[in-house]
Design a protein around this nucleic acid. Sequence first.
DNA 1: ACGGCAAGGATTGCATACGATTTGCGCATG
DNA 2: CATGCGCAAATCGTATGCAATCCTTGCCGT
Lengths: 237, 237
Amino acid sequence: MSISEQIILSETTPEDRSMAIREALRNAIIDRRLAPGTKLSEAEVGSLFDVSRTVARAALQMLTFEGLVKTERNRGAFVSNPSPDEARQIFASRRLIEPGIVAAALERITLEDIEQFRRQLQEEERYMTERGPAARRAEIKASGDFHLMLASVAGNAILQRFMDELIARSSLVIALYGRSGVSSCGHSEHFAILDALQAGDGERAAALMLHHIDHIEADLDLQEKQGLGLKDALAIG
Amino acid sequence: MSISEQIILSETTPEDRSMAIREALRNAIIDRRLAPGTKLSEAEVGSLFDVSRTVARAALQMLTFEGLVKTERNRGAFVSNPSPDEARQIFASRRLIEPGIVAAALERITLEDIEQFRRQLQEEERYMTERGPAARRAEIKASGDFHLMLASVAGNAILQRFMDELIARSSLVIALYGRSGVSSCGHSEHFAILDALQAGDGERAAALMLHHIDHIEADLDLQEKQGLGLKDALAIG
DNA sequence: ACGGCAAGGATTGCATACGATTTGCGCATG
DNA sequence: CATGCGCAAATCGTATGCAATCCTTGCCGT
């Protein structure tokens, strides 16, 4: 493990430290500071955050439930390395859910919300001008945030939680299989969706969202890359 | 807590006992053997299943993630008492997801699957003839199983997990707010959906599924019945 | 008589200790 | 030199102990 920053979470939440650790690890994973396959030993996580294994374990359990880490009995927890097939399932799920989210959001969104969204998107535009892995990570994160904000105004806590998981895993997949400037096209599409919402055209907004997801997935290179070594050896041998 | 049967899970799974406990509690909750609001103390659960608080706690954590129990810090875990609003969100989510599941299932379902489904449905019919709370619980459970089986043939593990949660919470809601013979109409609708699937008519199957969900929700009496026991006592006294 | 308050009990939150299981390495041996 | 066996290190799974927190309830002052 190589989290450069020893994150101080003493001040953040006096309660539920495992939640804070989950959040920190979650961010590290979807930012790709923790590479897929990285081992997350309970003791290591615990010492990094200066807590006992008990609470570290709880955090890892939560992440396992979210599908961001895979736990093998008596072996440990590892950052999830989603297969292309898993990636396809993730996007299939999003295609199913997000149009509905858009429709629900249309019912409840206010002008203030839309203003807020626009400010957020303009904020993101700054990252697009920059290059480098840090900027790319910020892009991926911000792009996901748009979808999450949309889910939050939809007013359905359950769907919001589903989206939380889907976006997190999508970020992981994009970081793994992403090809190029995902966001350059994705960004304008976010604006287009907002426009449709503002115009009250749910039909169009949903269609745009579908296209948007298609574009994101189309930009991926979903090839079986390094089949865990074992499969490579078997296939080659 | 009053789980009559002290379930023996020593033989079931030599590994991951917390998972077995989760399963047992889960069944008890959706079968309504554990009433909403029931306190699930770590020590009590632990002693019931003859494990330490640690593993009991893990099981409760998982159930909390699924939304079947609500945990209050420093207070304990309680069987979830879904509000009418939560119930509406659950069914809204199902309306969003299940038609997509039907469509996906259509692509992959085999004749054997359909045969299996029919056998299952006929099996359920036995329960319908009986009366009493036990039969009602069995009905609710079986009715949910149909949807879960459908999700499993859809071939999307993520959606399947979402449905797992939605069905579990639906069962809880139906047990809480259900009015009458949910299944009498629901059952025939299951057959109708199967017929549409066998005919390869995804359009119709999805529409039938939507109607089916509508019917289930329509049969609920979604009034704020926040008794909490206190008000019960007051009303009676 | 009523409202605030403090002591007591119960329960969770967390840390640590111990046993179980797996992995990897070294050594003996063919 | 290759191979198989066995031991040791590491890590997880689980139990239990202690401290912190919250609720209850009885008490006292007003």
